[in-house]
Write a protein that binds this DNA or RNA. Structure first.
Lengths: 223, 223
DNA sequence: TAAATACTTTACAGATTTTTCACAGAACAT
DNA sequence: ATGTTCTGTGAAAAATCTGTAAAGTATTTA
């Protein structure tokens, strides 16, 4: 899932600064230079959040806020240079979700954006993607070539452990300790058996799990 | 609709000031004088928002925030006397929804509280719609194929929790903590029993509640 | 207070998952 | 090439987990 943020500000420098910050966070940005453009863009793009400057040509920020709130609950952050309490209250009571005064600190800005994107971020950050293999940690579902495969809980945990240690060779002992909580690797072939089943279930992605003879296993999507 | 706000602050003066402000707005308040009390009260009362002071005996605000976030998304405002950017960032990234520095202005405080409550109310007044299943959160009525079904209070809360976490696998422990306020999942089959009844009452929608063996349950209208 | 309703606990069967084990086959060293 | 070591495999045994009924406890209603 890609998160898209609409940035509306008439000053080029500010616009680019904000976009840079957001892109650094891995978000996609769409820019508007005036109120009218902001409203139009919002209608045609699927936007997850709006950063809205108050002073803009055509429509000012307040007007844009009001118009968008007539039909959408999208989170909106109001940006302004005016440090006035009146303004802040006005912004918040007109339906804004947050209110930030310029100049703002990078970190606080990012933190406040992230609070409003909490749900989307949660979803996004829980999906692991490896070519034909996707692992959704929220629904605990695993997909190979877009098709869901059924793993048992243990198989799922084992796969997750290997994936979390991508490109790192882990011994059977380490795997046992991390996934099972105890070590039984000296006497049994338990892990090998599960790896076998896992590879089979992963189908074309089965060989992402590499055997490192004499040591253990490692997950790597390379060839 | 009745809105209840939990105010946690060890200073009596501040506590009463905040409660006065909130009661003026027509909100009901519950007060806690330390972190432990805050957590306990939250578990037993149905709270719509928490105002949380950082410096408190027993558990400080950060700890309370963290503990509550383990099982609840309730809006939380952090209050602090320390004007420090580090703190604000810490608060916001630890799961707070807003951060207010003391001393604050009456109006700004009210505005920020109202923003969070507005969202909450909007969320709570939605009719949830899943194919043949409708849940009217205002009247707490549930319909399957247009026909109302009778759920007990507990069954309703359980269903709502599962629905709010659509497509997310939740463990019995999480369900217990979120719905009951304590965990009893290790020793009893209480949840399974309620799930059974719920499925039966949901009729054709019964299989929206999926069992995820080894982990817990998840709500999903898919197939 | 009695009756009805709601909720929790318990025990157990059936289903599924996990482990074990013996052996076959591959990789490696000499 | 040969023996040794290590890994893959299939099937059966063991362990675990869930659904369910039924009984017990608590709470609400009349």
């Amino acid at each position: 899932m890609n998160i898209k943020i609409l940035v509306a500000d008439d000053e080029k420098v500010m616009r680019e600064l904000i976009c840079d910050i957001l892109q650094n966070q891995g978000y996609e940005t769409v820019v508007a230079c005036d109120g009218e453009e902001a409203i139009n863009l919002f209608k045609q793009e699927e936007v997850d959040l709006i950063v809205l400057d108050v002073m803009m040509p055509k429509y000012d920020g307040w007007t844009v806020l009001k118009k968008i709130r007539e039909y959408s609950d999208v989170p909106i952050i109001i940006l302004t240079a005016l440090e006035s309490e009146r303004n802040e209250i006005h912004g918040l009571t007109s339906g804004a979700d947050d209110y930030i005064i310029k100049p703002f600190s990078y970190e606080v800005f990012v933190a406040r954006v992230n609070v409003l994107l909490k749900k989307q971020i949660r979803k996004k950050s829980q999906v692991l993607n490896y070519k034909n293999l996707q692992i959704d940690q929220l629904s605990c579902k695993v997909f190979v070539c877009e098709k869901e495969i059924q793993l048992t809980n243990l198989e799922y945990k084992l796969l997750l452990y290997l994936v979390e240690n991508e490109n790192i060779v882990t011994s059977r002992e380490q795997i046992f300790l991390s996934v099972w909580g105890y070590d039984n690797s000296q006497t049994t072939r338990t892990i090998d058996t599960h790896i076998k089943v896992l590879r089979a279930k992963l189908g074309v992605c089965g060989d992402y799990i590499k055997t490192v003879r004499g040591i253990g296993y490692s997950f790597s999507k390379e060839e």
